[in-house]
Write a protein that binds this DNA or RNA. Structure first.
Length: 603
RNA sequence: GCGCCUGUAGCUCAGCUGGAUAGAGCAUCGGACUUCGAAUCCGGUGGUCGCAGGUUCGAAUCCUGCCGGGCGCGCCA
């Protein structure tokens, strides 16, 4: 039985208020009790201004009368009517007696709920191109996608995580062509290079050759690099020919393609495994790019699409309140990206009958998804409202934007190594003996802190935010960071080790948990599930680190308080505080797991 | 030109389905180790929420206009 205790407590407190209101103003909306913004305004508050009109009583008078309705409420320690607000102070001893056992045993305390029970959710993310290794942008994408998936699972949804691999197209041919022209038979084995990096090297090699060719021949003609590549460029022609050969199934091209894609796949797999990123389904563009043509034909018959004089098939964007038109079939009859996206989406719906399909894709594709969803809903009205684009902003570097064509990228593998090294150095400094005695253990912790810090950092910003990546901050323990939360967890473990079984046989006296630091911790534990639920339902993955941090912060204040020591407290209180530490550790562990971080018992 | 996103403390960001004195972290200044790990904790300084109007008992939040930044705008992905 999943019980959201916070919601339940609020409902219990609100009941007499609602009875009072319903009796006098049946039309009025029910009382929405919420934590106040003001610090000294108690634990829950109700603004009474909205009821003034219906009741024909001044807000302050309403608040005063409502205060009376809470007289002798077991959960209420005090009420105050201030400026039309009803401020309620909870009876924390009573709340504690319910909260701690709940947090120790009920899975709702871990953020589990039925908010999305019975729903099937598809999440598409990662979406690598098999011509270069994963970079920091992919890392943000994967962290967002993974968080959406884990939050949805916690909310009871059935989740299918899908990786759409872009394994065909002109950009793939560029790497292949570079291997043919400049590769001299190189392989990952012969070069000792991680396989996806080798392919990336070749891609960069191609771009460099193209740059030189353009500067020598295209630029003097006043052509842009793009136009040159699509025109008389020898490299461009060769790449286009290779794409045609690929589509025609030319054996040599297919064989090279298989081989080099295999290199990329192996590299991606290693990176994803290290990052703890997994998928239930992998869609490859080479297998889906022909999908959608029949949909377009059907849409043409139904009048969803129209044929352009040039022969291209178009979607009139005015149908969805946008300007212009969008092609779904080229004039030569070949498909475009949108065509296969239509087909892929429909196929997924046929296979999974999803309730919600979430695409985790950068915000430069906002327009594309607006168009795509508009078309899908026109083709199949049942899809209305089920398609979501989790749009996110770019990650910038302290010295500006990343530009993959210029090689100005933060490679994911290198970054993970760097963060590991930073975390390792910091750990070694604080733990010299362990570094000497058991460096492997220190490396294990460094990986947890480095990777966990990265995930926490990438996740803590709202998705639409374009933010500046700061690697030192991401592995720092000070402030709102992953390591801070891991440290709080480690300290909880440490305290419990010290307590051992001292509380065995003791009866916890929860009513004594009334110190401000104890109340704040209880409050954080109570609020945690609601944040996780909102993260899942409203697709706000940044609430995961926020909620976890709130618990970590409250717990840090608790374990630092000289008044709230567990050891040495009288038996009933010792037992109560021990259970509170166990509860906090349990919830912290759940938060770390939702983010995809490793919990450490020692740091 | 049009569309979407965005502008909040020195810096990095929350808050944006309207609620009271706008929050957090970093930085900075000061304080706490004879008691569970000081990798922590406590406190201080710091903001006309881009600007101007409007709606409202009440606006960072909603509406309008303007200014600045980012992204995108038929057969690229």
């Amino acid at each position: 039985m999943l019980t959201d205790l916070h919601a339940q407590i609020i409902a219990e407190v609100a009941r007499p208020l609602n009875d009072w209101l319903a009796e006098r103003a049946p039309e009025a909306p029910p009382a929405m009790l919420a934590p106040p913004t003001r610090e000294d305004a108690g634990d829950l508050t109700l603004p009474c201004h909205a009821y003034a009109r219906a009741l024909k009583i001044a807000p302050q008078a309403i608040a005063t009368q409502l205060a009376g309705a809470l007289d002798k409420h077991p959960l209420v320690a005090g009420v105050e009517a201030v400026a039309g607000f009803l401020n309620i102070r909870l009876s924390w001893g009573t709340v504690a007696a319910r909260t701690v056992p709940w947090a120790l045993t009920n899975d709702a305390a871990l953020g589990r709920s039925n908010a999305l029970a019975g729903q099937r959710l598809l999440v598409e993310y990662c979406s690598p191109n098999t011509n270069k290794p994963l970079h920091l942008g992919h890392a943000r994408n994967m962290v967002l996608g993974g968080a959406v998936a884990s939050a949805a699972r916690a909310a009871g949804a059935q989740v299918v995580r899908i990786n759409l691999v872009n394994d065909r197209g002109i950009h793939i041919c560029k790497s292949m062509l570079a291997w043919q022209l400049f590769g001299e038979g190189v392989t990952p084995e012969s070069s000792g290079r991680k396989s996806d990096h080798l392919v990336g090297d070749l891609y960069v090699r191609f771009e460099r050759a193209l740059q030189a060719e353009w500067e020598a021949q295209g630029q003097p003609l006043g052509l842009t690099k793009e136009d040159w590549f699509n025109g008389d460029s020898a490299l461009g022609r060769a790449a286009r020919q290779m794409l045609l050969d690929w589509e025609a199934g030319a054996p040599e091209v297919r064989a090279l393609w298989q081989r080099m894609n295999g290199w990329c796949d192996a590299g991606f797999e290693a990176t994803c495994a290290r990052m703890g990123v997994g998928f239930e389904q992998v869609d490859r563009e080479s297998q889906t790019y022909l999908l959608g043509k029949d949909l377009v034909a059907g849409g043409l018959t139904d009048g969803v699409f129209e044929r352009d004089p040039s022969g291209a098939v178009m979607f009139d964007l005015s149908r969805i309140g946008l300007e212009g038109k969008k092609a779904v079939l080229r004039s030569d009859g070949t498909s475009v990206y949108t065509t296969q996206d239509l087909g892929t989406a429909m196929q997924r719906h046929d296979v999974h009958t999803f309730d919600r399909m979430v695409y985790v894709v950068g915000n430069e594709q906002d327009h594309h998804f607006q168009c795509l969803f508009g078309m899908l809903e026109a083709l199949r009205p049942a899809l209305k409202g089920r398609m979501h684009h989790l749009s996110y902003g770019m990650v910038e570097l302290p010295d500006g934007k990343m530009k993959s064509r210029e090689g100005k990228v933060v490679d994911a593998d290198n970054l993970l190594d760097e963060l590991h090294a930073l975390a390792f150095e910091a750990a070694k400094e604080r733990n010299a003996e362990l570094a000497a005695a058991n460096p492997d253990e220190l490396h294990r912790r460094a990986e947890a802190v480095g990777l966990g810090g990265l995930k926490f950092f990438l996740l803590k910003f709202a998705p639409q935010t374009t933010f500046v990546f700061d690697k030192e901050r991401s592995v720092a323990i000070e402030g709102e960071t992953g390591a801070y939360c891991q440290y709080a967890y480690a300290r909880a473990s440490s305290i419990l080790r010290r307590i051992g079984e001292q509380d065995t046989g003791l009866t916890p006296d929860y009513a004594q948990l009334t110190l401000p630091v104890e109340q704040a911790l209880l409050s954080a534990l109570l609020k945690f599930p609601g944040e996780i639920r909102t993260a899942a339902v409203e697709l706000k993955p940044h609430l995961l680190p926020k909620a976890t941090y709130e618990v970590a912060r409250a717990f840090s204040a608790f374990f630092n308080s000289a008044d709230a020591k567990v050891l040495g407290a009288e038996p009933g209180l010792l037992a109560a505080r021990t259970q509170l530490v166990r509860a906090a550790r349990r919830v912290l562990g759940a938060g770390l797991e939702l983010i995809g971080m490793t919990a450490l018992d020692e740091m």
